[in-house]
Design a binder for these strands. Structure first.
Length: 245
RNA sequence: CUAUUAACUAAG
């Protein structure tokens, strides 16, 4: 059984959705009973595909066959809703967890924040952060980074930038993902200054740049028609030994 | 043995 679990999860990482489902079916045909881990592995496959309906069906199947979904099952399913752009369903799953007397952990909440973030429903994302705190969870980098994305997609760049201070106040240091996210909101001439300011902040904080950040910054320059600065950044990137992709 | 985050690229 453990072999099957591993294979299914690995096929998921390789994005071999159909193969993974096939292996799962074959397992049943050979009379091997799937465990929670088996189901969770398959759920993680659906998650990567954003196959929301299949994930929901599998959850039902778990209950039907007497295998109780756990936090990981729900975490994967919620993340599946994010990838499938179904933020309302991700919230519905949190409600369902509550009904099943399961306490959502940070994975679940963060995935839901991500789902809301992609959809730009930033007030829901804020509400989720509150839920986390109220239930005794400590929001982490994922929580705040996803929250910043929610504000960006929600059309509120100012609030996105405020997330920087809010996380520091709570003892979470922004990382390369945080800045990578924020660099995306730098459109127009004033946005360019913000982008360069963020780059300085990163330097001061000793956060190493990567390709994503450079690409985001360069994109910001291009949107502001400042190809001269794009070029400077490009040279700097090469000087730091970061390979373009 | 299983789960959560950023850029560019395609479509529009």
């Amino acid at each position: 059984e453990t072999s099957y679990n591993t294979v299914i999860a690995d096929l998921g990482h390789a994005m071999e959705i159909d193969l993974a489902s096939e292996v799962f079916r074959e397992m049943g045909e050979r009379g091997i009973a799937p465990s929670v881990v088996t189901y969770n592995s398959l759920l993680s496959v659906y998650e990567k595909a954003g196959a929301v309906d299949m994930a929901f069906n599998l959850l039902d199947e778990m209950y039907a066959s007497g295998v109780k979904p756990d936090e990981i099952s729900y975490g994967s399913s919620i993340s599946c809703c994010a990838k499938g752009k179904e933020w309302e369903k991700s919230l519905a799953l949190l409600v369902r967890m509550h009904q099943e007397h399961l306490q959502p952990n940070l994975y679940c909440i963060n995935a839901a924040i991500h789902a809301c973030g992609l959809a730009g429903v930033n007030q829901k994302a804020e509400a989720l952060l509150e839920v986390a705190v109220k239930t005794g969870l400590e929001p982490d980098l994922y929580s705040y980074n996803n929250l910043a994305m929610a504000h960006i997609n929600g059309g509120d760049p100012e609030q996105a930038l405020e997330v920087l201070d809010r996380m520091r106040e709570n003892g979470i240091d922004p990382d390369v993902f945080t800045y990578g996210t924020l660099l995306c909101i730098c459109e127009g001439p004033e946005g360019l200054d913000r982008a360069l300011g963020l780059l300085d902040e990163m330097r001061e904080a000793g956060i190493p740049m990567n390709v994503v950040c450079y690409t985001a910054a360069i994109t910001a320059c291009n949107k502001s028609q400042r190809t001269d600065i794009s070029w400077q950044l490009w040279k700097q990137m090469n000087k730091e030994g970061i390979k373009p992709n």
